[in-house]
Design a protein around this nucleic acid. Structure first.
Lengths: 231, 231
DNA sequence: TCGGAAACTTGACATTTATCAAGTGGCAGA
DNA sequence: TCTGCCACTTGATAAATGTCAAGTTTCCGA
């Protein structure tokens, strides 16, 4: 495990306040692995062997049932995933696969749990992390239950615009995945984009241009209690 | 704050392993309040003054957006709600109202946060609680995104059957709320019940009878990764 | 006991969303 | 460069879900 990665991990809020000895103990059992595109990392139903940390690349969290599949979230550097399953030692609720070439740190679950029992700062940092995750999923549920698919798309575009600080930006994922993430079919996503044309959304391949922010905002009615992922 | 309630709270996993002095400190600031039916307890967007614990009765957690409303969960004794907002000191994402006459313990948020900083066992218990909540919401999202409304109803009925240990049972909430919880309109719920008739679901007012468990199970295809709320 | 309100149901209809099939266009590998 | 694959789009159609209006039932309070 190279020094540089270890420092990067140390900077994550989750590990920042740990005692040195515990952090080093965690890192001793850790290892880094490189994965090509579209590799399954974990499968829902299995029990967690490792806590994963994405250092480079990106990972799709998805779920399946009865032959159907839906994308639940995208994990980007630098952050962890499947923390709750690891801590509870309960089966994964989601599967994970790389979206591109990715570098991932694997921390043995048992180490994470045993150090969680000993390091108080670590335990508190995990509370913060889990609260954040919990609130993100609640927001997502509200998005799904309270909005139509076109409204979800409109608000998604506004969130992206804010992240990019620009009215013109590229989608960060394939449209088919975006459709799945937003809870619709790819065909329906195409039509939803068309439906936003009157509100000043211009689409050219992956490039999005918002020509009338006020108009789109008026339609989308974004709310911090659904769309602000930072609180 | 009567002794009996304090003991009841002490028995909750979240408080069971706290140090006596901290637990007593928490209880000193706590007070119990009785509420009639259909009283708003909290409103989404506000910042948390109290961590709530339902001792008797039941509470509806719901959310609104753009004039629409959806039921997110029901809280029954003895358990807490809005833990994540309290710990993060972030705005409530959901509103809460009593569904019936309810007795509720209120713990000042600041006390909870300050004791969370000091009591390590409490911090760890909160991790367990939050993991549980997080996983419950993830399961709910999978239910919503992967299943049709009729499938959601079928699985809901199977979960209720298991909770009640009986093929005949009464719905524990109004149908209009059940509809909202399952993400559909009351009219659609009526039709979904009709649609389950061929699979042996008999409805008489609030009373449900499952006459052919195998048939219903074959249709519903329940999965522990969605329907098992205990893991 | 008798209203009357509210929950629930039902039917007709509208809207939203999904499915299927065909076509377009871009891109990577031979 | 060519070719074939795959994502994406589009149109036609079907299915799921929501809306509206009217009726029925239930239950509570006068």
């Amino acid at each position: 495990m190279p020094e540089s990665h270890s420092k990067e991990i140390r900077n994550l809020a989750m590990f920042a306040d740990m005692e040195d000895s515990y952090f080093e103990a965690l890192m001793r059992g850790a290892y880094v692995q490189n994965f090509p595109t579209r590799i399954d990392l974990i499968t829902e139903g299995e029990t967690p062997d490792f806590l994963h940390i994405v250092i480079e690349g990106s990972v799709d969290l998805f779920s399946t049932w009865n032959g159907r599949e839906t994308s639940m979230a995208t994990v980007r550097p630098v952050s962890t995933f499947i923390l709750a399953a690891t801590i509870k030692n309960a089966p994964y609720l989601m599967s994970a696969r790389t979206l591109e070439k990715s570098r991932i740190v694997l921390l043995p679950s048992e180490d994470v749990r045993s150090i969680f029992e000993k390091d108080n700062a670590f335990a508190r940092a995990i509370v913060t992390e889990l609260s954040q995750c919990y609130r993100a999923v609640v927001k997502n549920t509200k998005d799904l239950k309270l909005r139509t698919s076109r409204e979800r798309l409109a608000n998604y575009l506004l969130r992206q615009r804010n992240r990019m600080h620009s009215d013109t930006f590229d989608l960060t994922m394939e449209k088919r995945r975006l459709a799945s993430f937003l809870g619709m079919t790819p065909e329906n996503l195409s039509r939803a984009f068309k439906g936003l044309d009157p509100y000043g959304v211009k689409v050219n391949g992956n490039q999005i241009q918002i020509t009338d922010l006020d108009d789109l905002t008026h339609f989308a009615k974004p709310s911090p209690l659904i769309d602000d992922y930072s609180s």
